[in-house]
Measured scan of single mutants.
Amino acid sequence: MQGVVKVNSALNMRSGPGSNYGVIGTLRNNDKVEIIKEVDGWYEIRFNGKVGSASKSYITIVN
């Protein structure tokens, strides 16, 4: 499943599904990500070869 980031500035990509996990990357508006699965309001995603988590509130699913 594919998604597109929708933010005003930037979205942190984290090492796990929650804001208490470390930041491993930064996503910008309109970045395209691969959604692997949903976990507690977060998506596990793949972006630029990295796997991490980002809040699903800022990612829109595209077909």
Rank of each mutant, 00 (worst) to 15 (best):
N12W: 10
N48H: 10
A10C: 15
S9L: 11
P17G: 04
S53W: 15
V62E: 10
V4R: 09
N20I: 09
V7E: 03
K6L: 08
G25E: 11
N48R: 12
K32A: 10
R14Y: 15
M13D: 00
V5L: 04
E34Q: 10
N8D: 13
N48M: 12
L27H: 00
V7M: 04
S15G: 07
N48V: 05
E44F: 12
N8V: 12
I36T: 06
G52D: 02
S55L: 15
S15N: 09
N63D: 13
G3R: 03
L27N: 00
S55V: 12
T60G: 06
P17V: 03
S19M: 15
E34S: 07
K37D: 11
N8F: 10
G25P: 02
E44Y: 12
I45Y: 01
S55W: 14
D40M: 09
N8P: 11
V4T: 08
V39L: 10
G16P: 02
I36R: 03
G49W: 04
R46Y: 11
S19F: 15
L11D: 00
T26V: 14
S53M: 15
V4Y: 07
Y58K: 08
G25Y: 07
A10H: 14
V51A: 07
G16T: 02
G18F: 01
E38S: 06
E38V: 08
D31T: 08
G41L: 06
I45K: 00
V51S: 08
G25V: 08
Y21A: 03
G49M: 06
V5M: 04
G41W: 05
W42Q: 01
V4Q: 07
G22R: 13
V62N: 07
G41E: 09
N12Q: 14
N30G: 15
P17K: 03
K50F: 10
W42N: 01
V4L: 11
R28Q: 12
S15A: 13
V39Q: 10
N63G: 13
G49D: 09
T26E: 10
R14P: 01
D40H: 10
N12D: 14
V23R: 05
V33G: 01
S15Q: 08
E44P: 00
K6R: 14
S53G: 08
V23Q: 05
V51K: 09
V62Y: 09
T60N: 11
G18Y: 01
K37F: 09
V51G: 04
K50W: 09
E34D: 11
V62C: 13
I24V: 11
N20A: 10
N29T: 07
K6F: 07
Y21F: 12
R46V: 12
P17L: 03
R28N: 11
N29H: 09
E44G: 03
T60R: 12
I61D: 03
N63Y: 11
G41D: 10
G41Q: 07
I59W: 01
I36F: 08
G22N: 13
Y58P: 02
I45D: 00
L27V: 03
V39I: 12
I35G: 01
V51M: 09
N12R: 13
V51H: 08
S19Y: 15
W42H: 02
D40K: 09
T26G: 02
I61R: 07
S9D: 12
I36L: 14
R14F: 14
N48F: 08
V39Y: 12
K32T: 12
F47P: 00
M13R: 02
G3Q: 02
I36D: 02
V7C: 15
N30L: 10
N20Q: 14
G49Y: 05
V7K: 10
Y58S: 11
G16W: 03
S15L: 08
D40W: 07
A54R: 02
G41A: 06
E44W: 15
N30F: 08
A54C: 12
S57M: 14
V62L: 13
K50I: 14
G18V: 00
I45C: 04
V4W: 05
S15H: 05
N29F: 08
L27S: 00
T26P: 04
A10G: 10
V23M: 04
Y58F: 13
I45Q: 00
I24P: 01
I59L: 03
N29Q: 08
F47H: 09
N8A: 12
N48E: 12
N63T: 13
Y21C: 09
R46P: 00
V51L: 11
V7R: 06
N63K: 12
M13W: 08
I59D: 01
D40T: 06
M13H: 03
G41C: 08
V39C: 10
S55E: 15
N48L: 10
W42A: 01
L11K: 09
T60V: 14
K6Q: 11
E38Y: 06
E44K: 08
T60W: 14
V4A: 04
R46M: 12
M1D: 06
G22F: 09
N48I: 05
K50A: 10
T60S: 11
V62T: 11
G25L: 08
Y58T: 06
S53E: 02
G3D: 03
N20M: 11
G3L: 05
R28V: 10
L27A: 02
N30D: 10
S57F: 14
T26A: 07
N12I: 14
L27F: 01
E38R: 04
S53D: 03
R14A: 02
V51E: 07
K37H: 09
I35K: 00
R14G: 02
K37M: 09
S9M: 11
E34R: 06
S53P: 02
D31E: 07
M1R: 12
S15Y: 06
V5I: 08
K50T: 12
S9G: 15
L11W: 00
Y21I: 02
N8S: 13
Y58M: 09
W42Y: 10
M13Y: 06
S55D: 15
G3H: 02
N29E: 07
I35W: 02
M1S: 10
W42C: 04
G52F: 04
D40V: 05
I59R: 00
A54L: 10
W42E: 00
S15K: 09
I61C: 08
G25H: 08
Y43P: 00
T26N: 05
G18E: 03
K37I: 08
I61Y: 04
G16A: 03
A10W: 15
F47M: 05
Y21P: 02
G18I: 00
S9H: 14
S15W: 06
E34C: 13
V7G: 10
E34G: 04
I36V: 09
V23D: 02
V33H: 01
R14H: 15
K6N: 11
W42R: 01
E44D: 06
G16H: 03
G49F: 06
G22D: 15
R28H: 13
N29S: 08
S57P: 06
Q2E: 11
R14C: 08
S19K: 14
M13K: 01
M13C: 09
G25I: 08
M1V: 13
